[in-house]
């Protein structure tokens, strides 16, 4: 069984300079413990396994990055984003709609000199409505 303190000294020794006392302690422990030496070799093997790992991006990485940069600098070449286009079109339609409503309200105001629910939606008891009502009532009979 490896002594815990020596084991932690061993772990630390890979990444930091131990002070003289701890360095000597670890040296003695390594000389006297075969198990600790085996542990040292195992950790070294793992570190080598990780540090020797070779990875890379798929071929053409440089060109892909440069293309993206070029798209940023020349936005006319960027394919339109559907959502963004939809939002832009919606904004235009909404603004036109609001403008139409405002013009309609103004024209109602100028033609009837007032702006109320009756002038906007129409008077349900106007003569015309009354005539139609009576006419339909007669037809039903």
């Amino acid at each position: 069984m490896v002594e815990k303190e020596n084991y932690y000294l061993l772990l630390r020794s890979f990444d930091e300079d131990l002070d003289a006392d701890n360095a000597e302690k670890l040296r003695d422990a390594l000389n006297s413990s075969e198990e600790l030496r085996a542990e040292q070799e195992r950790i070294l093997a793992i570190r080598n396994m990780i540090s020797s790992r070779k990875v890379s991006f798929k071929p053409g990485f440089r060109d892909r990055v440069l293309n993206r940069i070029s798209e940023e600098h020349h936005p006319q070449f960027i394919k339109p984003d559907f959502n963004q286009t939809f939002v832009n079109v919606f904004k235009k339609v909404a603004l036109t709609g609001v403008a139409a409503i405002v013009i309609l309200l103004l024209s109602i105001y100028y033609s009837s000199s007032r702006l109320g629910v009756d002038t906007i939606v129409g008077d349900p008891y106007s003569d015309e409505s009354l005539v139609s009502y009576l006419l339909y009532e007669n037809i039903d009979e």
Partner: peptide, 15 residues
């Protein structure tokens, strides 16, 4: 330093 020690332990357990 402490993360390195603990990470090495974990990697040892796994590998």
């Amino acid at each position: 330093l402490s993360r390195l020690s603990r990470a090495q332990e974990k990697l040892k357990e796994i590998l």
